[in-house]
Amino acid sequence: MSLSRDQKIGAFFLLFAVLLVFVWVPLDVDSGYTVQVRRQVSVGDAFAPTIAGVFVLIGGLFLLVFGGTRDEPQEPIDFLALRFAGLLFAVYVLSFMMMLFVGPIAVLVSNLLTGMEQEYRLLRDAAPWKYLGFAVGCTFAITSTISLLEGRFSLRAVLIGLCAVLAMIAIYDLPFDDLLLPPNGDV
């Protein structure tokens, strides 16, 4: 018996709800559905997540039982979509890694060249250091995504990336003393 796409979604969420209610909630919540505190019974921490599980369970069950009758045109999850999603994910992981490491590496190189002993953490709110990681990572992310969508690399994509970086610095950093651009809150 082959299941329709909706029935497969229903089966997935049915299984998820069963695991949530019977495995995840009992193992990862300290109190039960009700707790007794000073001889008074009150609602425990497991109660609300179980209600959430019941919502998912009813929806999943109904999709599994009756989801096979409707033939709606839906966006396919195929190799093309997975390839695009994978590439996009890789681009963003790489760009945020760049954001995290470009600033400290630049400080390290500067220390080697000047003989100074500076720390990126102490320079994270000082120009130009605070912009380095953000500018490199952000330009890379925007340029790569535009290139992915257009199916070719172009100088125009790099220029748009740079302009977008400048715009974001102008919007989020220049007018404010209390805002930190990525990754400067984490270093």
Binding site: P49, F55, G59
Partner: peptide
């Protein structure tokens, strides 16, 4: 689809908890 609406609601509640 109400069944999908129920799933969406359940997931939202779960995320809140």
């Amino acid at each position: 689809s109400p069944a999908k609406g129920l799933i969406s609601t359940g997931l939202g509640l779960l995320a809140a908890y």
